[in-house]
Amino acid sequence: MHTAEQKLKERIKELTCLYEVTSLIVHSDYEQIEEVLKAIANCLQVAWQFDEETYVELETPIISIHTEERGEAYVFLESPIKVFNEPKGAIRVGYPSPKYSLDDFLVEEQQLLDNVCLEVGNLLERKEIKDNQENIRRQVEQADRLRILGEITAGIAHELNTPLANILGFAELLRERVEGDTRAVKDLDKIITNTIFSREVVKKLMFFACEMPEERSTLDIVPIIQDAIDLLRTTLAKNEVTCDLEVNAEQVLLRTDKIQLTQVIFNLVVNAIYFSPPKSTIKIKVTDKKDKVNLIISDEGSGIPKDKANSVFDPFFTTKPVGEGSGLGLSVVHGIIQSHKGSIEHAPNKPKGTIFTIELPKIK
């Protein structure tokens, strides 16, 4: 039986804990939320009746926290942490057993634990809301930058098309006239090669700026993907890389533009080949679902560095050496997928490499 003085002492400990937890949450920095949760676990440890033997476990999607163990087995009070009414973890406070049983916990301690879990759930909700707002803000800024850049690049592409066509045409005519001059022919071949490369960059700019005409129709995309892979057989063999295609249906019908879909597959597979080591495999998996088509391309290369993960779809961004990439391939892919009302994401492959996941809705 507790005396009035003992009961008062326990209430003071509980109220102090709740005050400290509330203060920690009110003044929390969302960038240091792990430190806040550790401090909350420590507050709970000293709030219990037998604080010197109290053990606390705090589990959330962000972090798992365990205070110093005081025994080998425990009897626990437990309360769930709910985020938007969904269980996203729990807090357990225990005493060593068999020294203690559930009867040794106070009713007020369960109430305190429930209140702390409620406060932690509110904290995680606010962090999730803030993270979502930050993601939306970045997406809006990115879309705005891409829109402006699209307008600029469309103008640049149109301005460059005519002079590049002239350079290529006159260089080819001149090459026919100087066939006997080996040095001149060699120099003209360089001009022609670089002009063709520049023309391809302009074509990618026009794809990015959505200036290329498209003709969408309902097509079986399996042979289109197979044709794109076949175009790269020589490059695959040269790099000692294999490419496997897996499809869950004989026909996968999708309303799309054949040239644009080929561009998507071509760019992603070329990138995968570039970063894949010899004797590795690039896997393409096509899954036909009721209202969408999923396309997954995975490689066993070096993967995308974490500090560059948010930039891979940016125009002119590339991790390739100077002269080996225009930085437009993935931004063109991103633009084409968006124009089809789809989505594209990337994630690390295991044990190494990258996985690109494309989701395209079946729009009639």
Rank of each mutant, 00 (worst) to 15 (best):
E141I: 15
R199Y: 03
V202N: 10
L205I: 14
L173A: 01
T153I: 11
N194Q: 00
I225M: 08
D144M: 14
E211W: 08
N161W: 11
M206W: 13
E211K: 06
M212K: 10
K204A: 01
T153M: 00
E215W: 11
N166E: 12
E215I: 10
E214G: 00
L232N: 07
F207L: 13
R147P: 04
I191L: 07
D187P: 01
V201M: 09
I192P: 01
K204P: 02
A165C: 05
Q142D: 05
R183D: 15
D144P: 10
T234D: 05
L146C: 04
D189K: 03
I152N: 01
R183S: 12
I224L: 13
E141W: 07
V202C: 07
A157H: 01
A165K: 12
T235M: 01
E176A: 04
I225R: 04
K203L: 04
V202Q: 09
Q139F: 02
R147E: 05
L231V: 01
I196E: 15
A237T: 08
A165S: 05
D189T: 05
R177M: 15
D220R: 05
M206S: 12
R177P: 06
A154R: 15
R138A: 12
E176K: 14
V201S: 06
R138V: 14
D220M: 05
A209V: 12
L164V: 10
F197C: 07
R199E: 03
R147I: 09
L160F: 05
E172A: 09
I148T: 11
E176W: 06
K238A: 07
K238M: 08
L236I: 04
E179W: 14
S198C: 00
G180K: 14
T235H: 06
M206C: 03
R216M: 05
T193N: 02
P223R: 12
R137V: 03
F208C: 04
L168W: 00
P163A: 08
D230I: 15
F208M: 02
V222M: 10
K190P: 00
L205H: 03
D144Y: 08
T193D: 06
R183I: 12
A165V: 08
L205E: 03
T162I: 13
I224H: 08
L188T: 05
T153P: 04
D220K: 01
E151T: 11
I152W: 11
S198I: 02
G155M: 09
E176F: 13
H158A: 15
G180I: 11
A237I: 04
L232V: 09
E214T: 12
T162W: 02
T182L: 13
Q226R: 14
L188C: 14
L231D: 10
V201Q: 13
R137Q: 10
G169D: 02
I225G: 09
R183N: 07
N166P: 00
K204V: 02
A165H: 07
A171G: 07
V201R: 10
T182K: 13
T193C: 08
L231P: 00
R175H: 07
A171W: 04
E172R: 11
A209Y: 13
A237V: 09
L232M: 09
